[in-house]
């Protein structure tokens, strides 16, 4: 198992180099002059030349790429927009997004798995239909609209919850519900269908036949197996939440990395965008690795060999 994890971690290196090259090329191929974005519309030619020299933007592309790699390892890579080390720019915001995404995924799993199990067990009853409708609504509702609706109700009308910023646990409630809604829907659908598959298996019939209570059959025998595909989805969703939090962050003024990423792309802040993409990619890979490890925990038949 340890060897498996180690090998997967080694694989991170080529993945991240690939991501960094692709991110670098896409950004540099897009039209737009970072010096102009730094200097603003009022900048003179002399300002632009000064800025290009200061940040090495006048150097050939391969040189710029190696400067980027070197800067990442030495921690000296500067954001063009903030003129501060990129990690000082990214980390405080990444931390906020990680916190929000973690709360969201917990909410999504709690709601999604409960709804999924209930609608599988009570298949074709009003409970199933209600859960299905809500799951589909959750998946298809635009984040902006849903966020503003909740804000209108809980912040403006009822004055129960703050509508923006962070600081207290209460600030987490609305954004994490909004961010987790779509994932909850997807998890519910996945849990329902895999649960239905499992409930049709012979061993479930056996368990029922030997007189186990319905609760024990569903809770212990069915759920554990049904969770295997769900865990994959949860892992993927967590990655998605991290990268896709930008809309929620904008609506709820959450100082996260999604908003930073969009601002940095618009400002052509190459170092921040490239580093954020590499970090998000690394995170995605690590979450997937965690999912694979979880398989082995859930399913004793799965064993990894080095």
């Amino acid at each position: 198992m340890l060897r498996f994890i180690f090998r997967r971690l080694l694989l991170l290196i080529p993945v991240l180099i690939g991501v960094s090259i692709v991110a670098f090329l896409i950004l540099h191929l897009a039209p737009g002059d970072p010096a102009q974005m730094m200097g603003g519309i009022e900048a003179s030619e002399a300002d632009l030349i000064m800025l290009r020299q200061k940040f090495g933007l006048d150097r050939p592309l391969p040189v710029q790429y190696f400067m980027f790699l070197k800067g990442m390892f030495t921690g000296e890579l500067l954001s063009l927009r903030y003129e501060s080390p990129v990690m000082e720019v990214i980390w405080p915001r990444l931390k906020n997004t990680l916190a929000l995404a973690s709360v969201s995924i917990v909410i999504a799993v709690l709601i999604g798995v409960t709804a999924g199990v209930l609608s599988a067990v009570k298949r074709k009853t009003w409970m199933d239909y209600t859960a299905t409708v809500f799951a589909l609504l959750g998946i298809s509702m635009p984040v902006f609209w849903w966020g503003l609706l909740l804000m209108l109700l809980f912040s403006v009308k009822l004055m129960w919850l703050p509508s923006g910023g962070m600081g207290t646990p209460l600030h987490y409630i609305l954004p994490s519900i909004v961010l987790g809604t779509a994932s909850a829907g997807i998890i519910a659908r996945m849990t329902r269908s895999s649960m239905l598959d499992v409930l049709r298996q012979d061993y479930i019939t056996t368990a029922t036949a030997k007189g186990l209570s319905r609760r024990l059959v569903v809770g212990r025998h069915a759920l554990r197996n049904a969770m295997i595909p769900t865990v994959t989805v949860v892992g993927l969703q967590f990655g998605q939440l991290l990268a896709g939090a930008v809309l929620t962050e904008t609506v709820f003024s959450w100082p996260g990395v999604g908003r930073l990423l969009v601002t940095s792309i618009l400002a052509r802040d190459y170092p921040v965008v490239q580093t954020s993409l590499v970090l998000i990619a690394a995170f995605f890979v690590l979450v997937n690795l965690a999912v694979d490890v979880l398989y082995a925990v859930l399913d004793p038949r799965v064993r990894y060999h080095g």
Binding site: S155, V156, G164, V251, S253
Partner: peptide, 18 residues
């Protein structure tokens, strides 16, 4: 000085007194 990028949210936060 708070950063509230979304126009709707900024208005709502004024309405709530935040």
């Amino acid at each position: 000085f708070m950063t509230i990028p979304d126009d709707n949210s900024r208005t709502m936060m004024l309405e709530t007194g935040e």
